[in-house]
Nucleic acid binder design. Sequence first.
DNA 1: TTGATATTGGACTAATCAGTTCATTTTTCA
DNA 2: TGAAAAATGAACTGATTAGTCCAATATCAA
Lengths: 203, 203
Amino acid sequence: MTQDLKQKQSRTQSLPKAQTGPGRPRGFDEAEALGQALQVFWKQGYEATSIDDLTAAMRLSRSSFYSAFSSKQDVFVAALRAYSENALGTLEQLAQGEREEALEAMVLALSGASDGPKGCMLVNCITELAPHNEQVAEIGRQHLERIEDLFARVLSPQDPGAANSTASALSALAIGILTLRKSGVSAHRIEQALSTARTLFTT
Amino acid sequence: MTQDLKQKQSRTQSLPKAQTGPGRPRGFDEAEALGQALQVFWKQGYEATSIDDLTAAMRLSRSSFYSAFSSKQDVFVAALRAYSENALGTLEQLAQGEREEALEAMVLALSGASDGPKGCMLVNCITELAPHNEQVAEIGRQHLERIEDLFARVLSPQDPGAANSTASALSALAIGILTLRKSGVSAHRIEQALSTARTLFTT
DNA sequence: TTGATATTGGACTAATCAGTTCATTTTTCA
DNA sequence: TGAAAAATGAACTGATTAGTCCAATATCAA
């Protein structure tokens, strides 16, 4: 069996190395490189992505890759965290809008209306890796919980706690729709599920 | 990059070989062996499963494996089809019950209440492989459509067409809950989503 | 310019991958 | 019993994997 994404229990996060003295400066931007890595992981999944895939996308040599990061999974977790922050930021922006428009936009975004066939990276990762890797599961859990909380706040700004059940259902529904989309279920069926989702928050 | 599950366009299905004459009979049951293979693919996913994993689980030598099946993906597709039939059979049984009890049981089964952390195999496969493999996407699509049709028939036996939207939403919701479960979201949040699911079919 | 330090590309390792080949064993039918 | 046929185990192929190492190069401060 291909070894599971190893569970480094509390491995140092790939902090940018302290610039201790003189020397050639890094010829690439770490965040940007992580962004490229993210795209590859997103498209192919963890197991199906090789270091060569990563270095090609990041335009890094193998040695630069390994001097900047400690392993494939290190890059993966860093990219996943960045993705989570970014995706939540987008959702928070959508949540600013008027109640029903905001909810509709959030559900659409979450259900992958614009991500093409790749689907939400975090959902992919949960499905592929969470059962075998607590670190990924934890990132996924936090991501999902923040999404639910966001839904609850938009649903019922005065008393978010009252909307918890609907919030849980809306995130589950959006994630489920994303899976339907990925298998290529007809647009008509997707629209049906979305219309029922709307009934959950239409007053 | 690890090669994607190749797309053999219309490869012969691994039919049991015609018993043409004398010779040592097969020492294993093909369906049973496929069942063992299924367990491994289910637990580990396609990419993370090696031929050694499969032969160990199926208790077959490498050569028996390759004389009975043509490739890893051949076994995979056969196992996936068997899984789909089996899962749909279970759901159809649950669908026999009284309306609300049937719907509740179906949602629970689909959302992985008893599959442990492995989740529904077909949902896993859709997430991992469907975007790159039309054969898997097709199996997933058919599976999901049959589930929706089943929901529609239970929701509204006289006029299943009228319940299409709710049926789509229920399957999406169940699948989404399954993903929540996989990331280890709290039982409380799962129950919240389930309770909202119930409101979709409680008269 | 020089010494120190960092990045870089390419070659390398050892393990693992999917799949093949073949000589041997086991079983069946005649 | 003997020949045909199928199953089997083990060794093998060539490709690919994640990760290491090092000599060459680039860039800094002084």
